[in-house]
Amino acid sequence: MDSTRYRIEKTILEQNFSRRSAFVDRYNPETFSLRVGLKCSSGQAYQLRIRIPPDYPNSIPRAYVMTPADLRDRAGQSLAQRSPSHDMHLLSPDGNQIQLCHYKPANWHPNVTLYKVALKCLVWLEAYENHMLTGKPIDHFLHS
């Protein structure tokens, strides 16, 4: 990510997430990522790691849930083990950190910001909490 885009992303994130987001390893293309804390309407907090590819924003970033680690579904099964999953909108995990499907690759474009990615992840988390309440798959809540 070039420096102009970096400043734009940082400004938008600071405006909306104040101190709950931070860039990590900016100069290491292997690990450069955004850490962001998201809170659902239930009050439950989640820590996400959004991996920023070297050609971001031209290719899509990947979003992982860091904490709580090893999220489970309503039946108690590890979501990482259920991945990839269409029902739960999950891509391939990194260890026990699940990867959220936030944008379809074909719909991704460079005017989407990391802030929007984080919002899409928040929508996934709300759907996840609804799944925990009702047992319905996440797809049920995200399908418009």
């Binding site: 991945s83 990839p84 269409h86 909108h89 999950l90 891509l91 499907c101 379809k104 690759p105």
Partner: peptide, 9 residues
Amino acid sequence: RRDLPAYTA
């Protein structure tokens, strides 16, 4: 494979 999510059958 690139265009569709990884869970596509």
